[in-house]
Design a protein around this nucleic acid. Structure first.
Length: 715
DNA sequence: CGCTAGTCAGTCTAGACAGCATGTC
DNA sequence: CTAGACTGACTAGCG
């Protein structure tokens, strides 16, 4: 670890003056120690670096300097890759600054854009790992002009689900030029070697962090916090988390509390709100926030009401069950210091910048989904991500992060494990059939035909141990051939049309195989059956199915309107996936039958954010299934799947499909128009007054214009 | 006998990437 | 081995 604290002057950088001016215009006169270190290690000379440092230590500026100096010297394009859409958005806004000196900046991710042709006109492209992987599979010409990659949050390599994608993108990027950024990791030297990069590791933080563990004393209502510097403090109250939260608030600091379930996040927020009377709030700002909440169109009304009552006391909870719009408002209000406390699930551990003076980690255990009744301790990496949120630059002198334990006996162990130890080493997650098969498919899709030797060349560049590569390589080749994803001719491997289609759709090969078997084995079927088939694949969404629900679902299986496309599994785990898929199918069936959103949320006990995710995934899968059925020439299925896909996308019956094409017209407005005799684009254009009456003047006018434009395009 | 407060056993549990179309990047 | 919120069935105790 580099301990020197050197601050290089921005003026001294070997960069053109217009570049330096942009940095200075942000109020930056000196580079902080990690930034200085990176420059000294040759960042501006295009040297490959692996930079590991805490969040908020100014890695983005390092990436900016790396990209700009590379592009100025070498031309071409650069790509900045992040693991999260929200980060893509955040970085895009930062990089926008460089447009003033002539670099064109674009971003692309799954929820935003898919026509990639326009990217050829841009110099700096911000995207996600999955999207870049997908782009590579489509082989656009302009990708050859990209010679510099910034791999952000590279520690996602260790994520069991998403790590394999990060790894395959990294393998391709390291064949060109790269700058890797990561949270602090223990085996950074090994990873740097793999990348062919020089490691730059620092622990420097803009705001010092003080870490501690809080435990209950035998004496009731008293809690002691043991800090890293061996000092202690005591707080008092009915509940440890609440006591410390109030203590921090009394010192005018914002608090971020992490809990391990949504329910706990909500109930902790509720409890804290009861004690908020002593905190003075900006009433005017709060009432504006409440008004913003009212104006949101998406989202369930129950969650909105609960949040409103909390926010009026300066508290909020935050988890993925909430709609995106709701979460955005909460984050923004916290950033503006109007909301004083957020109680969150790990949603806020990673992702966009959202610091607080005090971070309280309420639980270091998390329910194990695979083995019922078991708890796992969260990884050290996750602790570091959460504690790293402590301390707001410019507002707080220090940040403090407190772990709460229930038993005094745990203090030593927890202290050692989370505060004094290194994070877990990063390991390849390619060692599973699902990951490895997808990996090979992706390589062949991006590279075209490859000999066995070439293919092996790629595979051996991975982080996976050679012995494991050998095991999975042969298995993957055999499985992919037998299931006609690839074919071998003259010792050369090529994707079949089916395989290429699967790679382009970005679905898992197992998903594709299940869909194919389901469609080929049956005649055209009902909506529930298609939805169930797709939800049953490894790419399908997961929902929680309660005991009682399970029984209801099993009963429902008996009198379904049609036969399902998946055979009922005997094995217990498979069977619960089967029921999970049935629940997803029922949710989607209600969705496309225009059941009111609040009704769906209540009936299936999900949040609006959950519904959004399920729709998004099923939209993608119905689209993919439609294209697979085309590829396989299963015309009966194609017709049904095409309509199903359109209906899932907008949550409407078939009769509304024409109306929802209009921007700003969703399932609710389309139904309103339709029930009033406006049944298609033509009706909209012919009855502008009626449309304006139904939707309001302003929106109505826009809808009429848009409908006219759409009609014109058809002619 | 009927109501209710209290008890106890059982249930449940985080997150978030991907296609494509159209016209802001 | 490790948690805690919530629900619903059941029961003791009261008027």
């Amino acid at each position: 670890m580099s301990l020197e604290l050197e601050w290089m002057s921005v003026e001294d950088l070997k960069l053109p003056s217009n570049v330096i001016d942009i940095i200075k215009n942000r109020g930056i006169k000196k580079l902080n120690p990690p930034q200085t270190e990176a420059v000294k290690k040759g960042l501006l000379d295009g040297n490959r670096l692996l930079l590991t440092s805490p969040t908020g230590s100014g890695k983005t500026l390092i990436a900016e300097m790396g990209i700009i100096s590379f592009l100025l010297k070498n031309g071409g394009k650069a790509i900045y890759v992040t693991p999260l859409r929200a980060l893509t958005n955040e970085k895009y806004l930062t990089f926008k600054d460089w447009e003033s000196i002539g670099f064109k900046v674009a971003m692309t991710s799954g929820d935003y854009d898919t026509d990639d042709a326009w990217l050829k006109n841009y110099d700096i492209i911000i995207t996600t790992y999955e999207k870049l992987d997908s782009l590579w599979r489509h082989r656009p010409d302009w990708l050859n002009e990209v010679n510099y990659f910034v791999l952000d949050e590279l520690h996602y390599l260790n994520d069991p689900e998403r790590g394999p994608v990060v790894e395959s993108v990294t393998i391709r990027a390291k064949r060109r030029n790269l700058l890797a950024l990561s949270a602090t990791i223990s085996n950074y030297k090994q990873i740097a070697k793999w990348l062919g990069a020089e490691p730059v590791a620092t622990n420097w933080r803009p705001v010092p962090l003080i870490e501690g563990v809080m435990y209950p004393e035998r004496k009731k209502k008293e809690y002691t916090i043991l800090f890293r510097d061996n000092t202690t403090r005591k707080v008092h109250g009915d509940d440890a988390i609440i006591a410390y939260t109030l203590d921090s608030l009394s010192k005018n600091g914002q608090v971020l509390v992490f809990r391990n379930s949504r329910k706990m996040a909500e109930s902790t927020a509720l409890k804290i709100a009861n004690y908020m009377n002593f905190v003075s709030l900006d009433e005017k700002a709060i009432s504006e926030i409440l008004k913003q909440l009212d104006d949101i169109e998406e989202g369930g009304s129950d969650e909105k009401e609960l949040l409103k009552s909390l926010i009026s006391k300066g508290v909020a909870y935050h988890h993925a069950g909430l709609s995106k719009a709701l979460r955005d408002i909460i984050e923004e209000s916290f950033r503006k210091r109007k909301i004083k406390v957020i109680v969150a699930t790990p949603t806020l551990a990673a992702g966009v910048n959202l610091p607080a003076r005090t971070v309280i980690i309420g639980d270091i255990y998390r329910f194990n989904r695979k083995i019922a009744g078991y708890y796992d301790e969260i990884p050290v990496m996750e602790y570091k991500q959460m504690s790293g949120r402590a301390g707001r630059p410019g507002f707080d002198q220090i940040g403090e992060s407190i772990i709460v334990v229930r038993d005094k006996e745990d203090v030593d162990r927890v202290f050692k494990k989370y505060i004094l130890s290194d994070v877990e080493p990063i390991e390849s997650k390619l060692g599973s059939e699902r990951a490895f098969y997808t990996f090979l498919l992706g390589i062949l899709s991006a590279e075209g035909s490859l000999s066995e030797k070439q293919l092996e060349g790629f595979v051996y560049e991975s982080l996976l141990a050679k012995s494991l590569v050998d095991v999975y390589f042969d298995r993957a080749i055999r499985w992919l051939s037998e299931h006609s994803f690839i074919r071998e001719e003259n010792n050369t491997f090529t994707l079949t049309n089916f395989g290429k289609r699967v790679a382009d759709l970005y679905i898992n090969p197992f998903t594709a195989d299940i869909i194919r078997k389901g469609l080929e084995g049956h005649k055209a079927s009902c909506e529930i059956a298609y939805l169930h088939l797709l939800a049953f694949t490894p790419d399908g969404p997961l929902v929680s199915v309660g005991r009682n629900e399970e029984e209801e679902l099993i009963e429902l299986l008996e009198d379904l309107e049609c036969e399902l496309l998946v055979e009922e599994p005997y094995e217990e785990d498979e069977y619960s996936l089967y029921l999970n898929a049935l629940k997803v199918a029922l949710i989607m069936k209600d969705w496309i039958d225009e059941v009111d959103e609040d009704t769906i949320l209540g009936k299936y006990n999900i949040g609006s954010g959950d519904l959004r995710n399920i729709v998004e995934t099923m939209d993608w899968l119905t689209y993919s299934a439609y294209h697979l059925s085309k590829e396989l020439r299963l015309d009966d299925h194609s017709d049904k799947l095409r309509v199903l896909n359109l209906r899932v996308a907008d949550g409407v019956k078939e009769e509304l499909l024409e109306l929802v094409q209009i921007g700003g017209v969703g399932r609710k407005r389309a139904r309103l128009l339709y029930n009033n005799g406006i049944k298609g684009l033509g009706d909209v254009v012919m009855n502008p007054d009626k449309v304006r009456n139904l939707l309001g003047q302003k929106l109505g006018e826009r809808v009429v214009q848009e409908a006219a434009r759409l009609l014109n395009r058809f002619h």
